[in-house]
Design a protein around this nucleic acid. Structure first.
Lengths: 338, 338
DNA sequence: CTGAAAGCGCTAACAA
DNA sequence: TTGTTAGCGCTTTCAG
């Protein structure tokens, strides 16, 4: 392992110059810089991140705290964040916390605070005020994805608007009996996402002069199986059966499609289905959905951090971050039968 | 930020004793240890991992290199690894390499080698000999998951045996015309997994006196959509249609079930379907499958590393690692109709 | 623009 | 069992 001194010697300059040339901080003459670069390449020199971090206080590493790895939304956010960080020359340290108290506290105390990260991205995780304060006091930028953290910059789609859009799509097609499969209340830890989506749904209905009815709401757990069972419930009754179902996630929407099939109903002829996400499988099932772009959310979280971590490097300050979403009409929605 | 000196002062001992008490290396009297622990707690002291790493050469961090984040197998391995590492007090730094050459080389050079990790777990990634050598020379243990890396300890299920098991299940039910949906050749980078599974399938057939026929093989890309199309191909022809399909992954098996339905066939009455994985959705679809346990694979990879990283801590040396798998019979397989 | 040198905070000989 | 102390490899003032 070549060290900075070896490079300095080979390049005929001091270690300080090597450091400056390689890190880009401070001025170095083009001539010296070239010599340093060449020497470093020749020796296969790579800085020791530990020594560098210890001396500079920067680690070029960010921690990502995330509750699930095996769900589409979360793995996509992670992917986006990872890629963006790599581009900036940062490492990503992963903390997969299943919301569980003890493990989580320990992670905060013994990992995040070990000066291992320059910043933290918290995905769909409600941090306690003391956790936020602690990070803040340490001067570690923190950005949230997927839900508001008090006093912290957070990226979330406008769940109310997204739900409105999905519902209005159905209303526009002529549906009046529109059911909703949403999260159960205890799922609301995810930043009231279920509640917000339900609010969007209800307000869209009211705006169209339709009074939301309790019998047209079924709770589920955001899985395919959950959506399936909820949909069976909704579609099972022969009278006043809804002609359309808006599910709060694509996975539940897929469950709905499968339930309809199993009940001998045809989608969209007998029932229209719309979801939220644009999950990998949505296209395959012809599911109409409101796409959100979790990869982009991950990337944006990184960019937001970078502005704080490396000010001036790329001064495009998106003061208020509005995340994109988009209705994707496929074959699971149509006008209701007359 | 309290430093080690603060703790030492408060506890009335030297910094060396604090270090020893907190890290567990070297002997410390119970009395001193108690004092140190209390002082550290009082001050909210957390070691600086950089300083510690620099001085000791250990980072308590392992790098996980993985090609996908959004596929069941990979996210499960990652989850298992993360959890096991956390338990050992290690961090996990994630490198999500999409196999792409340039990005990958850069990661190896500038990230993994920056002394940031004590060891590397490579998931389904064929490392070049020079990459392996480089890590080896640096004294970084390396363990593979999901495919053999030359000269490296690797955890993989016995793909041939797994495929045999699945096929034999069908044969045992009385099927003779058994088709296989496997990976296309170019997918073979995944360590010949598709090839091995096909070999297992073929040898099981031969053992039962059935000659494998090319028309009963269809390649696909391990996705639901891919399996769907392959299955339509296989099930489309009216004569000599297979009575059973063995898909090399659950996702393709699910596609097969959906294809059968769309062709108006009933599973398992008209066609039996078996997969490999025990994907989250397998249970929901009643898919018979050979379960593998990727979480466990991730955990085992970590344990294997720990033996090398912290010798003596837990001396259960599993010399040859055989990974578990298990046939899960559900409702997608049955005797063929007579 | 460059070099000398003082640390960054901790660990590990070594000595006691 | 404990303390003293010399670094770990780099960054960054501070002079020049």
């Amino acid at each position: 392992m070549a060290g900075i001194e070896d490079v300095a010697r080979l390049a005929g300059v001091s270690t300080a110059t090597v450091s400056r040339a390689l890190s880009g901080r401070g001025h170095v003459s083009p001539a010296s810089k070239a010599k340093v670069l060449e020497a470093a390449a020749r020796l296969g020199y790579v800085v020791s991140s530990n020594a560098s971090s210890l001396a500079s206080g920067r680690t070029r590493n960010v921690g990502v705290v995330i509750p699930f790895l095996n769900r589409w939304f979360f793995s996509s956010v992670l992917e986006g964040a990872q890629q963006a960080l790599l581009r900036h020359g940062y490492d990503l340290t992963l903390y997969n916390l299943s919301g569980d108290g003890a493990e989580r506290a320990s992670v905060f105390e013994h990992f995040l605070l070990r000066q291992r990260v320059d910043a933290v991205i918290a995905v769909s995780l409600e941090l306690t005020e003391s956790e936020v304060t602690r990070l803040h006091d340490l001067g570690k930028p923190l950005v949230g994805v997927g839900g508001p953290i008090p006093g912290v910059r957070t990226l979330t789609i406008d769940d109310i608007a997204v739900a409105r859009l999905a519902t209005e799509h159905l209303i526009g097609l002529g549906h009046r009996r529109i059911a909703h499969i949403g999260g159960d209340l205890e799922f609301d830890l995810d930043f009231h996402l279920p509640t917000n989506r339900r609010l969007g749904y209800e307000s869209a209905l009211r705006d169209a002069g339709i009074e939301p009815e309790p019998k047209y709401f079924a709770p589920a757990d955001f899985t395919v199986a959950g959506g399936y069972h909820a949909a069976k419930q909704l579609l099972g009754s022969p009278r006043d059966r809804p002609t359309a179902i808006f599910a709060a996630s694509d996975e539940m929407a897929l469950g709905t499609i499968l339930a309809a099939r199993d009940l001998g109903m045809s989608v969209p002829r007998d029932v229209s289905v719309v979801g939220i996400d644009d999950h990998d499988l949505a296209d395959f099932f012809g599911l109409t959905t409101v796409a959100q772009f979790p990869r982009v959310q991950g990337e944006q979280a990184v960019e937001t951090l970078m502005e704080q971590l490396e000010p001036g490097s790329d001064a495009s300050e998106p003061a208020s971050i509005s995340l994109p979403y988009e209705l994707r009409v496929r074959s699971s929605t149509a006008r209701p039968e007359v």
